[in-house]
Computed example of a mutant assay.
Amino acid sequence: MADRITYLLVDGENIDATLGNSILGRRPHPDERPRWDRLLTFTQETWGQSAKGLFFLNASSGLPMSFVQALRALGYTPVPLSGTAEEKVVDIAIQRTLEALHARTDDVMLVSHDGDFLETVTPLIDGTRRVGLIAFEEFRNAGFQQLVHQGMEFFDLEHDTRAFNAPLPRLRIIPIAEFDPAQFLQ
């Protein structure tokens, strides 16, 4: 469909927390974070259609203007949200966006590891649209595996999207077709 687009929904907090807590063991430096423009380009090229990037931000304690301006320059629409300390405003907003997409025919690519989205993303896997997940495979919620069997496409945040400037210190299972002994003989 010529006018079909992909909505790229980014749960930046989740990606940052996984990167910092589970992979690096510390807060990531700016140069260690994903190159967000590469995710938008990856989405467009992978599914061969335009993509609209929505980057959800918890702005309850203020709006990080330099980051918001950078996101805009990269082609994203920042979605700054606020709420009480008990509210997971980013999760709530992404869930509402996924629900709103039920009434549309557009495709969706979710960037998160969070199982809180399983209930709202599952109905989108209906055979009429493409639904994808971008995450670190070893840290994605186990519930997404069943969705992959139902037709959700999965893309590794580091290896498939090439969103990082340097290799991350991850231990991942390597498909034999991708094994390169030179990586281990350095």
Rank of each mutant, 00 (worst) to 15 (best):
R96H: 11
A103K: 12
G48L: 11
M1I: 07
E45V: 13
G151Q: 06
L118P: 06
E138P: 11
R38N: 09
T6R: 02
W47N: 08
F144K: 03
A51K: 02
G132E: 07
F144Q: 03
H113T: 08
F117V: 00
F67A: 13
L39M: 04
F67C: 07
E138M: 12
E45N: 15
I23A: 02
V121C: 02
D156T: 07
A85L: 11
D156K: 07
I176G: 08
P123E: 01
H159D: 13
E158A: 14
P169W: 10
L39E: 00
E99Y: 06
F55T: 03
G25F: 06
V121A: 03
V121N: 01
T43N: 03
G132M: 06
T41R: 15
T120Y: 08
D180L: 12
I174S: 09
Y7I: 01
S60E: 07
F184N: 08
G83C: 04
D37E: 15
D91C: 01
I125F: 05
R129V: 06
T6V: 10
A142V: 12
N141C: 11
L39C: 00
A177E: 15
T6S: 08
L63G: 02
L81D: 07
E158F: 08
S50G: 14
E86R: 13
T105R: 14
R35P: 03
D114E: 05
A100P: 05
L19A: 02
N14K: 01
L81N: 06
D37N: 12
Q146E: 14
S66D: 15
G115P: 03
Q145G: 08
S66Q: 14
F154T: 08
P167H: 06
G12F: 02
M152H: 03
F42G: 05
A177D: 15
L71C: 06
K88A: 09
S61C: 10
G12S: 08
R162C: 10
Q69D: 15
G151A: 04
S82L: 13
F144S: 02
N165P: 12
L9D: 00
M65I: 13
Q44P: 07
P123Y: 03
L133E: 06
T46N: 12
D31V: 10
F136I: 09
I134W: 05
Q145L: 15
D126L: 03
T97V: 01
E13V: 07
A73R: 15
V148R: 12
V79P: 06
Q95I: 11
A142Y: 11
R72D: 10
F184Q: 10
R172I: 14
E158W: 07
D114V: 04
P28M: 00
L54D: 04
I23W: 05
R162D: 11
W47S: 09
M109L: 11
F144N: 04
A51W: 04
D114N: 06
M152F: 05
A103P: 07
A85R: 12
I173C: 11
D16F: 13
Q146V: 12
F67P: 03
F139V: 08
P28L: 01
P181L: 07
T6K: 00
G127E: 05
R129W: 09
V111K: 05
I125A: 03
A59F: 09
F144A: 01
F42L: 04
E32V: 01
N141S: 15
R129P: 08
T43C: 10
P64M: 03
A85P: 05
N165Q: 15
T41D: 14
L54P: 06
I92N: 05
I15A: 03
